[in-house]
Amino acid sequence: MMQDPIRIVLAKIGFDGHDRGLKVVARLLRDAGFEVIYLGLRQTTDAVVAVAEQEDADAIGLSIHNGGHLTLAPRMVAAVAERELEVPVIVGGIVPDRDIQALLDSGVAAVLGPGTSAADVVAVVRTTVAPE
């Protein structure tokens, strides 16, 4: 039997309207055989978790371009934990190198910073969802 496609919810939280990167990632993942539940802009952490729950998502991908990653990402992780979901949160966007460790420490599963290649995006999501 064929493997289920990986299902990932992609969203941006709050006011941040830069969705170019999120759209490119959505297509990259689709072309790699993923099922992308695309929520786009102006989501709340609660709304994203509610969707992840209904969609039985394998991962949540959050794109952050407004410098709010150190506040928003941990809040997303907390919302996931509060609903007792076992869904890894992956953060992409403008994340300076020096903040990566802090994000990982706060429970973010992986960080895709500026300049991450397409191959890396796909590989990181895959290994995050199904660690070898």
Binding site: F15, N66, G67
Partner: peptide, 15 residues
């Protein structure tokens, strides 16, 4: 939105 809107946290005066 005003600075005390729930989504404004972390964004006030930033960009």
């Amino acid at each position: 939105r005003d600075s005390d809107h729930e989504w404004s946290v972390g964004e006030v005066g930033k960009a």
